[in-house]
Amino acid sequence: MKKRILASLLAGILVIGLMVGCSKKAETADTDEGSSSGTETLTIAASATPHGEILEEAKKILKEDGINLEIEIFDDYVLPNEVVESEELDANYFQHAPYLDSFNEEKGTHLVDAGQIHYEPFGIYPGTKNNLDDLEDGDSIAVPNDTTNEARALLLLEDNGIITLKEGAGLTATVNDIDKNPKNIKIEELEAAQIPRVKEEVAFVVLNGNYALEAGFSVSKDAIAYEESDSEAAKTYVNIIAVKEGNEDEAKIKKLVEVLKSDDIKSFIETKYDGAVVPFE
């Protein structure tokens, strides 16, 4: 009798176990089905301003298209590339192509440009004078002293007829490449962050967008001249979406670039940044 009861109990436990197992499989299947039909996640590294702010705006649009954009903010220029190279994150948005190329060469990474989004134009701003026609012999103009930004500043001065650079100087130009300087303008080379502090001591200052804002300039209203979207510098230093080579054709990456170049995001950039950040056409 006891053996029969024990056998019945064991059979009952076996049936219950099978039922629970089937139930869990069904739940797993339902979960898998929900995942495949739910949103897709896209992870991206970015600098806080303006890149992170622009991405937060794009996130709202991407959500409507079934893409959950996860933004991770970095305050350096190395880790954002390393986490994309390792594919810990899908993409990054903080740099221009020359920096990316230099990073790849130095670090042996395999990152590529997946889309060109915006540029931050250099502008000539008032110092003690408000019009370039008022430049006099021996006046001073302050420019950034780092290689990339000094070249951009000198090219902008050349575009506005203040100096002429040696042929081929281009984006590596320094003051040593000035070929003609009819008004003997003194080029004051300073760290970019220091330039706003000398605006009352020089005729003009040449600044990029973020430093112009910090100096109290309205880029759209105060810039006497600035890099045009079709200028050599703007085309070269446009900020990009970077991904690991081979991932640039993924649907979610293409959608991200599409949204970042949409009219909605262009409008956001133009309204928020007052010309310090410009959508790249």
Rank of each mutant, 00 (worst) to 15 (best):
K24M: 13
D159T: 02
D76C: 05
K107H: 13
L213I: 04
P196S: 02
T39M: 03
I253G: 01
E201N: 04
D139A: 09
T128Q: 09
N181M: 13
S220V: 06
E158R: 13
V15E: 03
K24W: 10
G246V: 13
S36D: 14
L55S: 01
A215Y: 04
R197P: 10
Y77I: 05
E158Q: 15
L157I: 01
I44Q: 09
A26N: 12
N92K: 02
S220Y: 12
C22I: 14
L69C: 01
L165A: 02
D139I: 08
D32W: 11
N239I: 09
D146H: 08
V15R: 11
E258V: 04
D90N: 15
I141S: 06
K221N: 12
E158H: 14
F204Q: 07
I195A: 03
L132V: 15
T109A: 08
G38T: 10
E189M: 09
E57D: 10
Y77M: 09
L213R: 14
L190K: 06
D65N: 08
R197T: 14
F217T: 02
Y93P: 00
D159Y: 00
I73H: 08
F217C: 05
K2S: 15
G168Q: 03
S35Q: 15
K221M: 10
V20I: 12
V198D: 00
L6N: 13
K255D: 06
T43E: 14
K2C: 10
F204E: 10
D133G: 07
G209H: 07
E27M: 12
K272Q: 11
L89V: 07
E228Y: 08
M19V: 11
G170C: 07
Q194T: 06
E214Y: 10
R152Y: 14
A11S: 12
G34D: 14
D139E: 05
V257D: 00
N81M: 12
E70W: 00
Y273C: 00
Y211N: 07
K186Q: 09
A48I: 08
